[in-house]
């Protein structure tokens, strides 16, 4: 059986774009209404894991940038190679959290009780890499500090979720073994005692040269962005984990053809032989306009139906 889900921030619709620009007084209610609608759309398109569309987050770090102790809001900074900018967190002193940031920033009250809830959070290395460190003496110290924050946050919500996805675009770029090992230990610390299924989502980079190292990371699933990583760069292996395939390009309006995706999926299955397999968006859908994201969700549904019929 193939599982389906999407990642990160979903694009705002035209009305919300206008309302946020005008700081409309009813913004909170509008976000709530739109989140409910988007949760239903995910269900209607038969996604297996449903996630908060995070349309009220100004960037992937913002709730933490605004609320973590020891952090100040820094300059607008380019978010990887996108024409999108985020507020860089500046670490001024020892960082700390109440443990309620995720709890208060995810719409747990809006999920259908039957939904399998997935939450997205950056991995500790990506948190560190996207911040400016003016306090910790070493990379390791700062990564471990973020790991402590993430663990505390996850403990307060773990009972409400079925899948924790660590989005790790910065980590996906790391090639040095000792650094990967350092982050692996930090993630081990996070997941220890948290018995929820986890996914390390390595989007945005070609990870064919570091895949073996990532296989050793303590998560149940590895996510690969197959718009950046070519399958033909791998030898046939027996993967020890689940594989989430970022096959739906979240950065291009060109619509996938379900037959092409299924062909690619077969190829991936044959090469990786994973314990389980899933199809996901390659990044946050917020990099394409809402109407295109909606269509891509429908394509995911088509792929699901076809792959079921084909008993993939």
């Amino acid at each position: 059986m193939i599982n389906y889900w999407i990642a990160g921030i979903y694009p705002r619709n035209a009305k919300l774009i206008e309302s946020t620009r005008l700081y409309d007084k009813t913004l909170k209610e509008q976000f709530k209404k739109e989140k409910s609608r988007l949760l239903k759309i995910q269900s209607d398109n038969k996604l297996d894991f449903i996630s908060d569309p995070l349309i009220d987050w100004d960037d992937n770090l913002r709730p933490f940038t605004n609320s973590l102790r020891g952090i100040e809001r820094g300059p607008l900074t380019r978010y990887y190679e996108n024409n999108t900018f985020y507020r860089q967190p500046i670490i001024k002193s020892k960082i700390g959290t109440s443990g309620n940031i995720l709890k208060n920033s995810i719409c747990f009250d809006l999920f259908n009780k039957k939904s399998k809830v997935k939450i997205d959070i950056l991995d500790p290395f990506t948190f560190y890499d996207l911040s400016a460190n003016e306090f910790y003496k070493s990379e390791e110290e700062a990564v471990n500090a973020f790991a402590g924050i993430i663990k505390k946050e996850l403990i307060s919500i773990k009972n409400n979720v079925k899948l924790i996805q660590f989005n790790a675009p910065s980590l996906a770029r790391v090639v040095e073994r000792d650094r990967l090992n350092m982050v692996k230990k930090a993630i081990e610390n996070i997941v220890r005692g948290i018995d929820t299924k986890t996914c390390l989502n390595l989007w945005g980079s070609d990870i064919s040269n570091t895949f073996e190292e990532f296989q050793e990371f303590p998560t149940d699933i590895i996510g690969i962005d197959f718009t950046s990583t070519r399958v033909d760069r791998f030898d046939k292996i027996k993967m020890k984990k689940g594989l989430a395939c970022g096959l739906i390009d979240a950065k291009n309006t060109k619509m996938e053809k379900s037959a092409d995706v299924i062909r690619e999926l077969r190829n991936i299955k044959n090469v990786f032989n994973p314990e389980s397999i899933s199809i996901t968006s390659s990044w946050d859908f917020e990099f394409i306009p809402e109407s295109f994201a909606d269509r891509k969700l429908q394509i995911m549904k088509q792929i699901k139906e076809k792959s079921k019929m084909m008993k993939l």
């Binding site: 774009i17 999108t84 306009p289």
Partner: peptide
């Protein structure tokens, strides 16, 4: 034109 994409915060292009 395809539609609006965030540049930062509430600013879109």
């Amino acid at each position: 034109l395809a539609g609006k994409i965030r540049s930062w915060d509430n600013k879109y292009y």
